[in-house]
Write a protein that binds this DNA or RNA. Structure first.
Lengths: 194, 194
DNA sequence: GTCTATAATAGGATAGAC
DNA sequence: GTCTATCCTATTATAGAC
């Protein structure tokens, strides 16, 4: 339902913006390009987003937030053991990255780095996304009976490490950073078990 | 000697470009802004960099590569125990990030993400930088008598995790992701000891 | 090596007909 | 809601005097 060609204009715009900003960043993506890719006119973009490019950016980040949260949830629920689940998640990210020709890494990192400290609305949407993802991991760990403090700290490192490993894998055009980091994360998590 | 106001024009341009691209990314930084910040004229920029913006970008990335390598080397050599040294390095990055008002994270991440798959020259300079940093960590670990394979894999995860934790710390405006990740990295490294 | 002026193009944004 | 035309500014890059 989320990926049909018959999607509404607003949704097509958000999806196109999200994809383009994932690959080119916020500054590298033009409103006209978004409109073209979304098969919408410039007038439609400003009709749905009177706030202009910043408003499109916020919606794109929020869309990517939910999309990655879904992927994370799915990945985490395929395995009962959270350590194995995280490692599987890293491999999944590596596969997706490679299959995209090394173009589709974290959907919001580029936008995050370009706008931090300079575009408050986007900054806030980015911070919320990171928090959201961390919470998903923390909840999974707590449900696997990790103490709250350990779960909290491990979730921070899991998301940070996946972010960094995806960046490293992307610029190196290699799955290795993600698979290695996934195994190290599993080892770290297991070292807190029992 | 590297930070004197009497630096040559070319060096001032490279330093200004490196700083601006660290904060705003490659796409978000204009050549005119670089010239202004470097107290040089547009003519001088194109005199030293006939390759235009891309050539400036490559030089900026290479400059940042060396700068971060120096910081890393210094950090790694303050402690004999590599686990403690990495944790100290993470705290050092956190301090620097906070003191800059959360603006100065990894000097090349933004540029890397915006240009990957689209600007081969910059892509290559970025890949070299990551490799360079990883090698510094791997060498440190090998010198501390870690087996070559462990040192290699750990170095990948150390750089990836520092990258991701710095990104997370920056968007969260909190030192916690970096300090927590530093401690987790130390724990991971120690788990390979003996 | 430095400077100013300018070309050529692309950017974000708006107006108003339909 | 959609579309086209257009405004204004900023962008990269070049030319040529000094």
């Amino acid at each position: 339902m989320a990926n049909t060609p018959q999607a509404g204009t607003r949704e097509r715009i958000v999806r196109a913006a999200s994809l383009l900003m994932q690959r080119q960043g916020y500054e590298g993506t033009g409103i006209k390009q978004v409109a073209q890719e979304a098969k919408a006119t410039l007038g439609s973009v400003y009709h749905f987003f009177p706030g202009g490019k910043q408003a499109v950016g916020v919606a794109a980040v929020q869309h990517a937030d939910q999309e990655f949260a879904d992927l994370l949830s799915a990945s985490l629920s395929t395995e009962a053991d959270p350590a194995k689940a995280i490692a599987a998640c890293a491999r999944e990210l590596a596969r997706h990255l490679r299959e995209s020709g090394w173009t589709d890494g974290c959907p919001i990192s580029a936008t995050a780095l370009e706008t931090t400290g300079r575009v408050p609305d986007i900054e806030q949407a980015v911070a919320q996304a990171f928090q959201h993802w961390r919470d998903l991991v923390a909840t999974t760990l707590r449900e696997a009976s990790f103490p709250q403090n350990d779960a909290h700290d491990l979730a921070i490192t899991v998301i940070s490490t996946l972010e960094g490993a995806e960046l490293t894998a992307q610029v190196s055009k290699s799955e290795t950073p993600l698979t290695v980091a996934g195994e190290h994360l599993a080892r770290l998590i297991n070292s807190y078990k029992g």
